[in-house]
């Protein structure tokens, strides 16, 4: 099997990715006592590729920085944050100006919760968004179609956000993404609080979007939801991506999975071996320059604690581990 270093990854892939995220790091600056500035690192050396027509799931635990990843791609981070690394969209560098130009048009966000809706604005006005007068009629029509597709009664449009039920709110948030002709859709945690049926329904919407040719990034903490509809799954752990694997690799005992964490995650699922994982995800201040999974790894070697392992392309996947080939 061929294994290459990071710089060759992009060239090594087959078709061109719509969005490439390379070596993305994100920190916050905070003033602590005595005007001393401290840096709080949330994301380090993250790499992602999203392809048109595919659903890429980014799976990570709560509070790990998933929403911030989405906000970083859209360029809506708070002012006390610092972003490094690079992004490419359609082969062109995705700068802050470019993000501002594309968001709402080619790149859409489906936000995590109803707090992302203006509490004093009617749903229909929010779903159609800020549009010029001449396009208003067209957008209204599109909104009505979308509502019909997502089983939202027409009078939902006249409601205010607090009048929506949990499931309705989800569908409203999803429908905002369909108002533009987005090519890249980033859905931030769209499934919590949904019953089995609405969950499957919501996930199907994303699959449909991908089928229509969009690249969908599904951000979630729920690996089972991710397994249902994604084409590829990226495992987000301690601020970085440990593995990106195709969905077909998640079978049997997980022998096709390369990273020991992914394998453990797979085997922890109730329908598999239901094997509990020991230890916890390290906080950023517990990291000591080696592999972030070192403390919990069953196949670690001495070298693993020295340097952060390189991200390698193995077959169709990416993996950040020294001891796989």
């Amino acid at each position: 099997m061929k294994s290459e270093v990071m710089t060759n990854i992009i060239d090594g892939s087959g078709s061109e990715a719509l969005l490439k995220v390379r070596d993305l790091s994100l920190s916050f600056f905070q003033y602590t006592s005595g005007l001393r500035q401290t840096e709080l690192r949330i994301i380090s050396n993250m790499n992602l590729e999203a392809y048109s027509g595919e659903v890429l799931a980014v799976v990570g635990s709560s509070g790990s920085g998933k929403s911030l990843l989405a906000h970083a791609i859209l360029g809506i981070l708070p002012s006390n944050s610092r972003l490094s690394g690079s992004m490419e969209y359609k082969g062109q560098s995705l700068t802050q100006e470019k993000k501002e130009e594309l968001r709402g048009k080619e790149i859409s966000l489906i936000p995590q919760s109803t707090t992302y809706l203006d509490p004093l604005m009617r749903i229909s006005d929010q779903v159609t968004g800020s549009v010029e007068k001449k396009d208003k009629g067209l957008m209204r029509e599109r909104q009505r179609d979308t509502f019909q597709r997502y089983n939202l009664r027409p009078d939902v449009g006249k409601m205010l956000p607090h009048e929506l039920s949990g499931g309705m709110a989800r569908r409203v948030l999803v429908s905002t993404a369909l108002m533009s002709s987005a090519e890249l859709i980033i859905a931030d945690e769209p499934t919590p609080g949904l019953d089995e049926r609405s969950l499957d329904e919501t996930l199907r919407y994303f699959k449909d979007m991908a089928k229509k040719g969009c690249a969908v990034i599904l951000i979630t903490h729920d690996i089972e939801a991710a397994l249902k509809i994604s084409d590829r799954i990226a495992i987000f752990y301690a601020g970085t991506i440990l593995e990106e694997a195709r969905i077909e690799d998640f079978t049997n005992e997980g022998e096709n999975l390369r990273h020991p964490y992914t394998r453990a995650l797979w085997n922890a699922l109730p329908q598999n071996r239901f094997q509990k994982m020991e230890g916890h995800q390290p906080m950023q201040d517990e990291l000591n320059g080696g592999c972030v999974f070192f403390e919990r790894c069953s196949i670690r070697t001495e070298d693993c604690s020295k340097d952060i392992p390189q991200l390698k392309r193995i077959g169709e996947g990416l993996v950040r581990c020294n001891n796989v080939s």
Partner: peptide, 23 residues
């Protein structure tokens, strides 16, 4: 959050303030 989302949908500048801020 809701102004963040409005920005994510392409709203900006004075229009954004008027539409969500003043309201």
């Amino acid at each position: 959050d809701y102004v963040l989302f409005a920005k994510a949908r392409g709203e900006k500048g004075f229009g954004l303030v008027l539409r969500h801020g003043v309201r």
